[in-house]
C-alpha cells in the first residue's frame, strides 16, 4: 500500500532552534547583574555590613525580620495608595477646574507652582501639629506631593483643544459643558493616565518621608529605627521593599494607561 503513496518532496522544516527572546529576558538579567555586581563589590572592598551589606545579607535580613517588614510594607503601601487616591480625585477636580477657563488657569497656575515648590518634608511638622503623628500625616504628605503632576496634566489636556474643533461644535450651539464632556475630558485622559505613573512614585516619596519624620509604623519608620540600632542590612531590606512596591505600582499604572487610552498611542493628538 505504501508504494501507492506519492512522495512529494517536502523540504523538511528546519528544526526550530531554541529561540531566546533577549528583549523580554533583559529586565531579569540586568537586575540579577546589578545584584551580582553589588555582591562582588561589597565582598572585594571588604566594607563591613554596617556600611554596605551584601545583597545576600540583605535578603537574609528580609527573611529574618519578615514579620515586621511585611507589616510595615503593608502600612506604607496603604498610606501611599490612600494618599494617591485622594490625589487622583483632587487632581482631576482641580485640573478640570483650572482647565475650564483661561482666567482661572492664569490665576491659579502661579499659586500651584509656588505651592509645588515648597519641599513637602517641611510641611510634615505642620501636619503633625494638626493631626498628631501616625497614618494621617503620611497619607496627606503622599497626597500633597503627588497631586500636582495630575493637576498640570489634566489642565494641559483641556487647555490644548484645537480651536477648529471648538468652532465646529460652538457653531452647532454647543455649551462650554458640552465641549468639555465631548472633547476636553476624553482628550485629557492620556495626559491624566500618563501623569499617574509619575504621581504614584512621588506618593511613595511623600509617605516614606512623613513616616521617617513622624510615625510609629511604616517602612520609613522601620528604616529610621533600624538605622539608629546600626542594623544596616534591615535599612537596605526596607529600601528593597520600597523598590518592589514602587515597581509594582508603576507597572499597574502603566497597564491601566495602556488599557484606557490605547487610541492615544496610535494617533497623534493633533488630528
Amino acid at each position: 500500500m505504501s508504494s501507492t503513496e506519492t512522495r512529494t518532496p517536502v523540504a523538511a522544516a528546519p528544526k526550530p532552534a531554541l529561540k531566546i527572546n533577549w528583549v523580554r529576558l533583559s529586565p531579569v538579567l540586568y537586575t540579577i547583574g546589578l545584584f551580582v555586581i553589588w555582591e562582588l563589590g561589597a565582598r572585594i572592598s571588604g566594607l563591613p555590613h554596617t556600611i554596605l551589606p551584601t545583597p545576600t545579607r540583605v535578603f537574609e535580613a528580609i527573611f529574618q525580620y519578615w514579620s515586621p517588614i511585611w507589616k510595615n510594607s503593608v502600612q506604607t503601601l496603604y498610606t501611599t495608595v490612600l494618599g494617591f487616591l485622594i490625589a487622583i480625585v483632587a487632581g482631576l477636580g482641580i485640573g478640570l477646574f483650572i482647565g475650564w477657563s483661561k482666567t482661572i488657569y492664569a490665576g491659579l497656575y502661579p499659586i500651584m507652582v509656588g505651592f509645588n515648590a515648597i519641599p513637602k518634608v517641611a510641611l510634615v511638622p505642620i501636619l503633625v501639629i494638626w493631626f498628631g503623628i501616625g497614618t494621617v500625616p503620611a497619607v496627606l504628605t503622599a497626597f500633597l506631593i503627588s497631586f500636582f503632576p495630575i493637576v498640570v496634566n489634566v489642565a494641559t489636556g483641556l487647555a490644548t483643544i484645537e480651536p477648529e474643533t471648538e468652532d465646529v461644535l460652538r457653531a452647532l450651539g454647543a455649551k462650554k459643558l458640552d465641549i468639555m464632556l465631548k472633547v476636553g475630558i476624553p482628550r485629557s485622559m492620556p495626559y491624566f493616565f500618563g501623569s499617574l505613573k509619575v504621581a504614584i512614585t512621588l506618593a511613595f516619596v511623600g509617605s516614606v518621608v512623613s513616616e521617617t519624620v513622624a510615625s510609629n509604623s511604616g517602612l520609613g519608620q522601620m528604616m529610621a529605627s533600624a538605622q539608629s540600632n546600626f542594623n544596616v542590612p534591615l535599612v537596605f531590606a526596607g529600601l528593597l521593599m520600597l523598590a518592589v512596591e514602587g515597581i509594582a505600582m508603576y507597572a499597574l499604572m502603566a497597564w491601566i494607561e495602556k488599557r484606557m487610552t490605547g487610541w492615544a498611542h496610535r494617533s497623534t493628538m493633533s488630528n
Binding site: 477648529e164 465646529v168 472633547v183 482628550r187 487610541w263 492615544a264 488630528n271
Partner: peptide, 12 residues
C-alpha cells in the same frame, strides 16, 4: 455645518 482644512476628527 462647518468643515476646515484640518479634519479635527476625535481620535478616541
Amino acid at each position: 455645518g462647518m468643515a476646515f482644512q484640518n479634519p479635527t476628527m476625535l481620535p478616541w
